[in-house]
């Protein structure tokens, strides 16, 4: 058997999915496009952000939308020191569970900070909107510390 150079090349597989958002997530994304964050009130009175279509206890359809604040606090977080290409930020950042003012549950998003040492559970953060909003979760470019000038 003659020796052969083993061939190798870059190969990209792409799936160009589109998704229908439905009336609840569609409304949430419409709100983001308008730089508002909306949740929905569940049967037990809690405000859920992002909104759910159906109540987790009664399974009833939910439609009592509530606007929540654009600041909140970090409930828990994880520092990403080496962001990958698909990550929302290309410099080190944190994934965080953020409980927005007026919400009763935390939502996940990214937090931009100069270093890991600036972050802490309970730290106050605020939304940084994307320059252009289009009705997508990335309309929130990231959260950043509310009381630190970066």
């Amino acid at each position: 058997m003659s020796p052969t150079e083993v061939l190798s090349e870059a190969f990209e597989l792409g799936f160009t999915y589109t998704r229908s958002t439905g009336p609840v997530v569609g409304r949430f994304l419409t709100g983001l496009r308008d730089r508002r964050i909306e949740g929905v009130r569940a049967s037990d009175g809690r405000v859920i952000v992002p909104p759910m279509e159906y109540d987790s206890d009664t399974a009833a359809a939910l439609d009592d939308f509530v606007e929540v604040g654009q600041q909140g606090e970090i409930v828990s977080w994880c520092w990403v020191s080496e962001p990958r290409r698909a990550h929302p930020l290309q410099q080190p950042f944190a994934w965080a569970m953020i409980k927005l003012d007026g919400a009763d549950v935390a939502m996940i998003h990214c937090v931009s900070a100069a270093s890991e040492s600036q972050l802490a559970t309970g730290a106050r953060v605020k939304v940084r909107w994307a320059e252009e909003t289009r009705g997508h979760i990335k309309d929130i470019a990231c959260f950043e510390l509310a009381e630190v000038t970066q």
Partner: peptide, 14 residues
Amino acid sequence: VTGIEAPVYLQYQF
């Protein structure tokens, strides 16, 4: 908003 684009691109070295 009624829909979003949600493409997935997988980069391999074959």
